[in-house]
Amino acid sequence: MANQMTADSRAELGALRAQGGGRIVDALVRLFVLVCGVFVVVSTVLVIAFLAKTGIKGIREVGLAQIIGHVVWKPEAGLFGGVPLIVGTLISAAGAVVLGAAPAVFAAAWVTDFAPKSLKTPFRRLFEITSAVPSVVYGWLALSYLVPLMDRLAHRLYGEDAQVGGEGLASAAMLLGVMIVPTVTILSLDALARVPQSLRDASAALGASPLQTAFRVVIPGAWRGLLVAVFYGFARAAGETMAVQMVIGGARQLAPNAFAPTTTISTQIVMDMQNAMPGTPESDALYAMALVLLVLSSGVVLITRGLSARRSL
């Protein structure tokens, strides 16, 4: 039958479908999209609600004072001092921003306003690809090459007999710095591209050199977007788990220096969750730490939102 169908009859059929069946298909597609939308929103809200509920239960059981004020995290002894975890997370993420985000922003500025035009697209593609490299690969590379290097550096700095090693905040911050470069670079490129060409032209017309234009016109004009890029980098670094766990050492203590093993919130969740049966204080306290991490990261994202909402460019 289908073979014998002429082009005309097919067109007729299509028209018929559009008239009669069209509405039903329309309604079905609409329903499908609606269901998807509701499903996504409900599941996201449920995840946050569950985390909040269990986390708050954990905070009630353990006490907020202990979670954000005590330095001994030892679930097997009923001690849930979260300070080493929170400090480890904040310092490693802040270190990553200094080591990784700042160069990324300037690299984006260089490509936007100084590099040959033909480099722009390959540069962007490069970072799109590297942002898709799984974190376990970064972690493994760091463990194999960065950690031994940092170990030598540590002993060079503190002496051969010192209790220092390659695993610690220095390695973690450096690794995270490398890991956030692609995200920060791509977001920075977008922010700089939003600065209108007319501003650059006007600056040049006033006699400003390209360098003056970049630092006095383009970067100040895009500063909110650049800040958003840096904050996203921070949030990504703070939430990273696998790679950091491989190089930070996993010692539940405040690090006396950047070359001593310590821990982060996400690292400790991975280490302890196997031993925490649901419903026990150990499990609730871990959820409390997860909630703290969520508040830290979402706080950063909210600040970012506030900044980008008022963005003029």
Partner: peptide
Amino acid sequence: RAPASGTRAVFGGIVLGGDKFVEGQTED
């Protein structure tokens, strides 16, 4: 080893008389 480890429990129990390990690098 991480606190959930049986190796840690056995070695600590026999050698240290309990989980009295110094805090340090930890592998799971």
